[in-house]
Write a protein that binds this DNA or RNA. Structure first.
Lengths: 225, 225
DNA sequence: CCGGGAACGGCAACTTCTTGCCGATCTGCC
DNA sequence: GGCAGATCGGCAAGAAGTTGCCGTTCCCGG
């Protein structure tokens, strides 16, 4: 059922909105009175966080301490220093709880346990968003979100982990990324091979990697090499 | 011997200039009549390439076909699409020969085999530049540069290599970066383990990596994963 | 139809990595 | 000193990864 340009009612409690502008027009007001905002995003460029954020911030000003804001971002973001700063700023300014995950994550917004917005595919240059008010569906999405939330890492912890790895293993990272064999690397560090390998294992553990290739990718991802 | 603010004569033929602005003031004119420009840089932000480039371009306009320009950049740069485009633009517009290396490289400018500019450390917020006119030193620096030049890869070739790897092994890259074991990965691709491993070997070869960790780093570096 | 070359994959010998185990050291603390 | 806990590193068994060799299959141009 096409209700108007940019809005399709799919069934009771589920509509599809085309394009960010349209989405903002139709759901922007929901944010003004929200007391619980939950949000997953792959980048900082989503409209919630984008040029509209000032307006939102104003609308929400003074109520910030009544609002629980939770956000999940991909750890990739932290690669980019300005983005990382922006994240920290949001955490401090909005009192948002921010977590970080290495997993791909679908852009999701949950408002007051009453409305869910799920980003969908691009079509004709505009992204489609499912706006859901159907209670059972919301329940399900929230449950999924909680799972991701639990498995994600708090921003502060994540920062600490990165710092820890930097402290722990700069030399090991170096040698690994030079393609040096364990024996040679251990000699170069004046360590026993066993100890060097223990270091590598710790490093892989810290990176959450299951193979050296993966560890290499993650290390690079975190800007450690 | 401090000659004036921002310029220190260290010995005959070697001066140290503090800050990019100062460097530009003192050596900018050399570019106007240059017929051979050689340059190594880690990013596009050096003053030669920066906001002054228009003035330079104008000064050099009409003489471009008489000027041999060679530049080396770190392959990191190509990660960033806008930068990569800019590089291609320069190549086409200035007729510059551009090569790419994975090595760290000291910022270096050589003008007409007569002047060498070497970037040094930051001090008081300004980078120091050695401006060298001493012939033997220039000879030495040029020789070093030639070595790096020879070991670097032409931009076009580099692009082709990246394209090749993308074509060759997207699935393999995927599985590797997921930390999947060879046996399982091979099954998933419907290949024999031997063949999968052959693919991995080809990939590592293409990446110039000697260990899987290193391959992971490089793959990520090239934005392949 | 028939070579010839390329891709595939089984096999096997080797190398490299991964880990548990355990004794040797070192360190801080009664 | 003597104990407890952390770190180190040798050893060794086993897992994972690396490569050469070679037979099989498929495709292509003659």
């Amino acid at each position: 059922m096409l209700i108007s340009d940019g809005l399709t009612r799919v069934s009771d409690g589920v509509s599809i909105v085309r394009g960010e502008e349209e989405l903002f027009r139709r759901t922007g007001h929901l944010f003004a009175n929200a007391t619980e905002l939950t949000c997953a995003a792959n980048d900082l460029a989503t409209w919630v966080a984008g040029h509209k954020s000032e307006a939102l911030a104003n609308a929400m000003a003074g109520r910030l301490h009544h609002v629980r804001i939770r956000k999940i971002y991909r750890s990739d973001l932290l690669l980019d220093l300005p983005s990382a700063r922006e994240l920290a700023r949001r955490r401090d300014h909005f009192g948002a709880q921010i977590r970080v995950t290495t997993e791909e994550i679908n852009e999701t917004i949950i408002i007051d346990r009453r409305v869910v917005i799920l980003a969908g595919d691009l079509s004709a240059g505009r992204r489609g968003y499912s706006v859901i008010t159907q209670p059972e569906t919301i329940q399900g999405v929230m449950s999924l979100f909680e799972t991701v939330w639990r498995s994600a890492t708090d921003l502060a912890v994540h920062d600490a982990q990165v710092a820890e790895i930097r402290r722990l293993a700069p030399a090991v990272l170096d040698l690994l990324s030079q393609g040096v064999k364990d024996e040679a690397a251990a000699r170069k560090l004046g360590l026993g091979a066993r100890t060097y390998r223990r270091r590598v294992a710790e490093l892989m553990d810290a990176l959450g990697a299951e193979s050296r290739f993966q560890a290499g990718v993650r290390a690079r991802e975190l800007g450690l090499v």
